[in-house]
Amino acid sequence: MNVVLYHNPKCSTSRNALTLLRERGIEPTVVDYLKTGWDAATLQRLASGAGVGLGGLLRTKEAGAKALLEANASDAAVLKAVLAEPILIERPIVETDKGARIGRPIERVLEVL
């Protein structure tokens, strides 16, 4: 099974999700999205795979993300903001052939394994 972890190594929840996967014998492809950034196709695929709109991927603890949600921003506005500021996306996100899940709580990643 192909498993991709969209990861922020500075985030303890993201690190714990990586540990959880490895404890189950899964070595995911790790994408440090703060270094690589996002692209529109990946974000739309993750939102669809997680069963949420683009706004559902936003990290509400980030002021910019919170402002977008409070303004009921369009998907186009969310996409533009996230492409400019990758930190606005929640972490970690795990993607497999079964879909995608935001790992909060981290046990949610097990749903797509």
Rank of each mutant, 00 (worst) to 15 (best):
L79F: 02
R59Y: 02
P92A: 12
D39E: 06
I102K: 06
D39S: 06
N2G: 14
I26T: 11
D75E: 12
G56P: 08
Y33S: 02
P28D: 05
T29Y: 01
T19F: 06
C11R: 14
L5Q: 08
V4Q: 09
G53L: 03
A50R: 03
A63N: 11
L57W: 00
L18F: 04
V3I: 14
L69T: 06
V109M: 14
A76C: 03
I26K: 14
K61V: 13
L20F: 14
L110W: 06
A81D: 01
I26S: 08
V109P: 03
V30W: 05
A73W: 07
K35P: 10
S14R: 07
D39V: 05
E90C: 09
D32P: 14
G49M: 07
K98N: 15
L43W: 03
S14G: 05
R45I: 10
L54R: 05
C11T: 08
G25H: 02
L54G: 11
Y6K: 04
N72C: 10
I87A: 14
M1N: 10
N8W: 03
I102C: 15
T96E: 07
A73Y: 07
R91F: 10
A84P: 00
P86V: 10
A73D: 01
D97R: 02
N72Y: 00
L58F: 12
A47G: 09
E95I: 12
P105L: 14
T19M: 00
T13Q: 13
L79A: 09
I106C: 12
D32T: 12
E85C: 15
K10P: 01
R45K: 07
L34C: 02
R15T: 04
M1R: 09
R15M: 04
A41R: 11
K35A: 15
P105K: 12
Y33D: 01
L110D: 06
I89S: 06
V112L: 13
L79Y: 06
G25F: 08
M1L: 13
V3Y: 07
D39Q: 05
G55A: 07
G49F: 06
A47V: 06
L88P: 00
K98I: 08
L69E: 05
